[in-house]
């Protein structure tokens, strides 16, 4: 299987690569449009700040390429947020694959922001399947995508938000499967089945 991990300034690129190594999947980390287009599946990682990340994508014309992809594409964390219409993080215009606005969590005395740590999935369905209901995955983020018609799993923190989504060939997770122990590896495998 030919897997492309999109190369830009995402902080978790290496972690995603190592997670694929651990489950025995080969991949290339690339920003070459032809190589990305020719791969069977694409992983769009993301850790960092939205406007900076979008600038990196624009500089490499990846903002034009990603929406045109036809094979299964998995956005992770900031990758998922960048697939939305826009983000409140420095008022950033994003790729608009999901017609959603990424919002900032309002911190409370009890609920700190960033949402950091292991939290459980609920209402898991679609490509994830109900087997992941109430399993724990690792989150670290200050912005979230509200629950919407594309949501396939939710997590509750301050508000219920989209933990995973899917629209057409675009898959997305807010948590870090590459850092979520055995459950995370199962979820990566689940995506790779598509």
């Amino acid at each position: 299987m030919k897997i492309a991990i999109i190369k830009y300034n995402a902080g978790n690129t290496q972690s995603v690569a190592f997670a694929l190594d651990r489950i025995g999947i080969s991949y290339t980390i690339t920003d070459n449009p032809e190589e990305i287009k020719a791969s069977e599946k694409v992983i769009f990682p993301g850790v960092g700040e939205a406007s900076t990340a979008m600038k990196y994508l624009e500089n490499k014309n990846l903002d034009q390429l990603i929406p045109q992809l036809k094979q299964p594409v998995l956005g992770i964390c900031l990758g998922m947020q960048l697939m939305c219409q826009s983000s409140e993080e420095n008022d950033t215009k994003c790729l608009n694959l999901f017609d959603q606005t990424v919002k900032r969590f309002d911190a409370t005395q009890i609920s700190k922001v960033p949402h950091t740590g292991w939290n459980n999935l609920t209402k898991s369905k679609g490509w994830l399947g109900s087997e992941f209901d109430n399993t724990f995955v690792y989150f670290v983020h200050s912005y979230y995508v509200p629950v919407n018609p594309h949501t396939v799993a939710q997590t509750d923190y301050i508000v219920p938000f989209s933990a995973a989504m899917k629209k057409d060939n675009f898959f997305a997770v807010q948590f870090h499967p590459e850092k979520s122990a055995e459950i995370g590896e199962k979820i990566l495998k689940q995506f790779l089945k598509n």
Partner: peptide, 9 residues
């Protein structure tokens, strides 16, 4: 560091 890599790390 926060600007370059995000607060979360």
């Amino acid at each position: 560091l926060a600007k370059e890599f995000g607060s979360q790390c």
